[in-house]
Computed example of a mutant assay.
Amino acid sequence: MKPAIKRVWVLGAGQLGAMLKHAAQPLGVDLRPVDIALDANLPLDDGDVITAEREQWPSTKATDQLAAHPNFVNQEVFGLVADRVTQKQMLDRLNLPTAPWVLVTEQDTAAGLHQQYGARVLLKQRTGGFDGRGQHWLVEHQGSDNQTSPHLSNAIPHGWHNKVIAEQAIAFDEEVSIVGVRNRVGECHYYPLALNRHQDGILTVTLAPLERLSSLQNAAQAMLKKVMDELDYVGVMAMELFRVGERLLINELAPRVHNSGHWTQSGASISQFEYHVRATADLPLAPAVIKHKSVMINLIGIEYNLAWLALPGAEVFWYGKDVRPMRKVGHINFSMAHQVQLLDSLKSLQATLPDWYQPALDWAINELES
């Protein structure tokens, strides 16, 4: 039986919206990303479905119309998760482990936060802020006698009270993430845990799957399932985690497809983008079959290089955005059955990228060789 074409609107027309559109076409789903700056009415029908590629958006004719549609999937979730206070409160209520935290009010001082959480305290803006932006470290100076000095290297920035949370610094072993999907009847599927390397606060490389992380898979799935069930969530959700020994702490949630899940475009029978389309358009889900070990490399603030296309196994995704410093402009996936070939391609890629990338690629190569 030919599938009925269903129309899904995506609030946002960035690279995630574009990749959702690409995933929807083979499924017979008419998916239409909408620029958040569009100040015009859209031809919406009652049976259309609305989703989003982002947690926040401005008020325009188009976004207001989409937000008012009764079939806006997860509409109440976006605001809850976008605000780090309400997100953390939910995780606390569900008894899910996170870094100790507090909302910074006018009564709080840097000295007081250090007394409560230690020498290193991370301030995060309640909304917005990603790739290392919207954050500020409070770090105590060390005196010449190597004792903690009451003098602070910095203070809570002006105007940040009530707009940020403070988190205790976590001495984590590494950063991992899990991406899962849930449909309207509560059926869930999950990808293997991915290992992530950040540089200057920006995700640079993701590796998945790794056998050494498999012992943590069930715990990560249970944590994500608890959140998705609590929210009656529909679609793909990502959970960023810190691994501390054999424990996992939740760093942040993303109620959408996520950068650390881009490897699934090459390394799984169903990508995270296809899963999101299936769930929101009420199409059947199925367990994704993992093909091979995969590596995803973000392209950050660099010009397009045709040499990437000549690398064996490279699958290049270029976003067509203006190139600016520290801006994600694309990514490259490798998913290969033979590790020697994968390593050879990564080493060849390394020669095409600037010095900023070398520590992250050295890390990836060492991890795969170990």
Rank of each mutant, 00 (worst) to 15 (best):
A37I: 00
Y117K: 08
N305A: 14
P43Q: 04
R278W: 03
P325N: 12
S294I: 09
L361I: 15
S294N: 06
M326L: 09
S215G: 14
F78N: 03
E55R: 10
H22M: 10
G129N: 10
V179M: 08
G129S: 10
Q125I: 11
L94F: 11
L207F: 03
R182S: 09
G112F: 03
N305V: 02
S214T: 15
I270L: 15
H262G: 02
W57P: 02
R278D: 13
V104D: 02
P255A: 07
T60Q: 12
F72L: 06
Q358M: 05
E211M: 06
L353K: 05
P97L: 06
A194Y: 04
V104S: 04
A219D: 13
D282E: 13
K291D: 07
W356K: 15
D30G: 06
G128L: 06
F78S: 06
K124C: 05
L210T: 06
H189F: 15
L20F: 11
P150N: 05
A194T: 14
K225T: 13
F78W: 10
E76N: 14
G128Q: 09
I332C: 06
I170L: 08
Q339R: 15
P359W: 02
F273N: 01
L231S: 04
H151M: 11
M326S: 14
G129T: 12
V102W: 00
Q75W: 03
K328I: 10
L249V: 01
S271Q: 10
I300N: 03
V73K: 03
D344Q: 15
G129M: 14
A166R: 00
Q339E: 15
G47A: 13
S266H: 05
L285R: 11
V77D: 01
D344C: 08
